[in-house]
Design a protein around this nucleic acid. Structure first.
Lengths: 226, 226, 226, 226
DNA sequence: AATGAATGAGAATTCATTCAT
DNA sequence: TATGAATGAATTCTCATTCAT
């Protein structure tokens, strides 16, 4: 469960060189997936020799891991502001959906890279990435659900961890729906071919769904106060 | 967008032979992913020669497509009963969650196979599979949401297609959480390491979340009837 | 400590094909040593594709092991007749030296191959070859020394195992001296540049040396019968 | 047949630096053999840059040759005292065997390095090393055999060069038997697995064998004086 | 229909050697 | 003198696909 997957030589490399290499790697891995990605091609794209590539990374896997780490870091900082804003939960949800719509369209790379994780054999690495990617959102979501519950803003009888999980599931699925070919198709099947042309509809309904899920349902109320 | 990806010879083959071949393929593709799966190995597992394999399928991709088709058909029939039962929506949700918990544990194959779709280049194929896999659930979910809305069982102001989408997103994510390494880790981060030991908790909270989402929230009510 | 280092496909191959492949391998390994030997070149020499080479052998090491096994078998049968003849010990020694002179000149391959063993990392393999190559000679030498000792033909106070070892050491070194570049030079330094032109001298002195070593020395006699 | 295989810069280098470099080289070549040894690794072990390495030596081969030269010089001085002591031949033999047992166990490096010579293509180099390594022992052995023969200590009818050769063959094989994996196995096959635990037995029998070989055999005597 | 031997292009990785600084 | 980044040809091994029988 190491954090560093590159050799010292990569640390010593020129920052612009590092960026070029990681960009080339991220691009190739996102485009072709882990297995089909070709190190020789990545080296060429980065404008360096294969040999140097192997001075920087011991194996193809290490290169991939480093690319993932980098991409995650980039994404995490982008998202964490939104996630950790002190807005009310539903305002955050709204902001998150809008962020997903905007950034996913701009940068499909991360989500594509994301699926490369599946190709990894090593359980350790999978756990490492899950931890790194999911922990931030989890902490944020769970924390504000706890607070909201204390403040009486959401139903008192819900398991905040499970509800945070459902909350994130909706957002993650939405994110995939703006990026992955398969999920885009699925989105169109469920919500119509024009769903990508009406972002407001998506925001509105998502917020409605989540708002409703988090508050006392009328049925529940009836049940409790007969 | 063809539906058939095998050669005529495969139609003429003995049914048990066909099953053996597809099972071998499904197993191999699920275990190693599309790229790493090895046709020669599949042929051996199926007990036929590579040569014959190529009498049945033009390419590795065709074999994969046929395997996917087969696996989808199997899964679809399994699921459609549950999906199309005439129970109330929340009862169905409960049943679906339980089915997911049970079948995912038993047969991880399909979900693993599923992620192989991502490795496909061909957009046509992706769209074809999305259609085939998602359409059934969509039709069912959407139909009963429409009916429920007409019957006043769920809030009248929701976009049934979008809500069906959210509903399925929760279920699909749950399904992955019982099968894929990455999603399993994510599940543990959100809901605790022992989440896999308390299926009832998951059922209870999922139903609570969905029930709440589908009905008028009290807050909403208060807001509307001050 | 397996005995077979090839895949079943090699067993099924045409005998002449097998011979061609092993000859090509033996030649290449003998010429360049284990590390420098090139599988692609061996395949080309054998007139088959690299792919087929790997249908026959899992790794370069396996190919080498199989080549060694084959070469040892060839050599062993050649030698074992001489070794197991029922001549008197010194006659055998003489015959052995003559055989070494003749066969080493004809076929330098084996001894050259032999040094490739040193390059092997795997202790198991080294032990396996040592056993296979040395056991035959050991059994033969030791057996006839035992018999000779019982018959009073050699000194009664010698450790027959150690003496068999010294006996074989002389013969082995001689063998190397007719084949390996280094040992040839050494031979010339010790015995003169013309040592290769007078085989009889070598036979004569070797027999003299061994004969003397195996029988009671005068000094010994004097010592014992003062 | 040059004697120097390094560039002038190496002469100008600091003596301790030279030693470090050669030690690193000797260690690496002994451990991995010529082909597998890695110049970059040697440079790192020696604490200098690859670039400087190539200021000292034109090629990997040159580095190896220089390392060999150095190792031979070290070994030669170590051995020559023993070899040139003025003890009786058998006492020397005994001392040599004991030296072999002691030094081989302590320093396997040289013998391992030794086998790297085999990997050399260049005949000139092989001859050069043979000359350098073997000449000293040869001169010593031959000289004292000549003297011994004049003094009537050994049989008058033996070819002293050939006998010196046999004498050295026994000692060399013993040396290998304490160091090389293969020869160690061979030693165990011939003399028993516990041969390494009873050094005295080896000394005793070796001396017995050689003593006997060098003196008139009784059989011979009987034959000559019937 | 059925076999499975055979192909060969392709991909990851290594390392002796060069060269700008 | 000294560095160590950079090169790229070479090598082992894989596997989808073909084809003679």
């Amino acid at each position: 469960m190491e954090t560093v997957h590159h050799k010292p030589a990569f640390d010593r490399a020129d920052p612009s060189r590092k960026k070029t290499v990681l960009d080339a790697g991220i691009g190739e891995f996102a485009e072709h997936g882990y297995e089909k990605a070709n190190i020789n091609v990545i080296a060429k794209k980065a404008g360096i020799s294969v040999g140097l590539m192997y001075k920087y990374f011991d194996t193809k896997e290490d290169l991939f891991l480093t690319c993932m780490d980098c991409a995650i870091d980039t994404m995490t900082t982008e998202i964490s502001e939104v996630v950790n804003s002190d807005a009310k939960i539903l305002n955050r949800a709204e902001q998150l959906v809008r962020t997903v719509q905007r950034t996913s369209r701009e940068d499909t790379t991360f989500v594509k890279l994301y699926s490369g994780i599946t190709e990894l054999k090593n359980d350790q690495h999978v756990a490492y990435f899950a931890e790194k990617i999911e922990r931030v959102s989890y902490e944020a979501y769970h924390a504000f659900l706890e607070r909201a519950q204390r403040d009486g803003d959401i139903r008192p009888d819900c398991d905040t961890r499970m509800f945070a999980f459902f909350f994130d599931s909706i957002l993650t699925t939405l994110q995939f729906s703006y990026v992955s070919d398969y999920y885009r198709e699925r989105f169109k099947i469920y919500c119509g071919d024009d769903v990508f042309e009406d972002d407001e509809r998506v925001v509105r309904e998502a917020v409605k769904f989540l708002e409703s899920a988090f508050t006392f349902s009328q049925a529940e109320v009836k049940h409790k106060n007969p």
